[in-house]
Design a protein around this nucleic acid. Structure first.
Length: 113
DNA sequence: CGATTGACGTACG
DNA sequence: TCGTACGCCAATC
């Protein structure tokens, strides 16, 4: 067991820690992992997890604008919006309303070791 | 093996 | 204030 999890694994762990009804963006996760501006890797990890079959609440991860940028990758774009609405979020025009209110920053909510 | 792309974000004009 | 350009790292073509 390597003490340092792979970048992908770390992303999965953070995303899995997202409370229900909360959402976050790629940049926040990237910053929490220390990658900083490599927010693209987070998105890549999401795609990989989706392909790997791992269960990751990727629907809770959106871009910094609160737009469901990854809805197209869920198989059914409506599924992502539906999941978020099911958690009490308000989606309009593929965008999360009150995104700031439901924003969950791992680097703030989650304590660094 | 080199070039391109990608579920993004920030900087600069 | 809005639009464009660049950087990040890895995987794929």
């Amino acid at each position: 067991m390597p003490e340092e999890l792979s970048f992908f694994d770390q992303v999965y762990e953070v995303v899995r820690c997202i409370p229900k009804g909360k959402v976050t963006n790629y940049g926040a996760i990237a910053r929490y992992l220390g990658t900083g501006k490599s927010s693209r890797m987070v998105g890549w990890a999401m795609n990989a997890s989706h392909i790997s079959g791992l269960k990751v609440p990727a629907h809770r991860v959106v871009n910094r604008l609160g737009i469901l940028s990854g809805k197209a990758h869920f198989g059914d774009p409506q599924a992502m919006q539906r999941l978020l609405e099911k958690e009490g979020l308000k989606i309009e025009n593929d965008r999360i309303k009150n995104f700031e209110a439901h924003f969950w920053d791992p680097s703030k909510e989650l304590e660094l070791p």
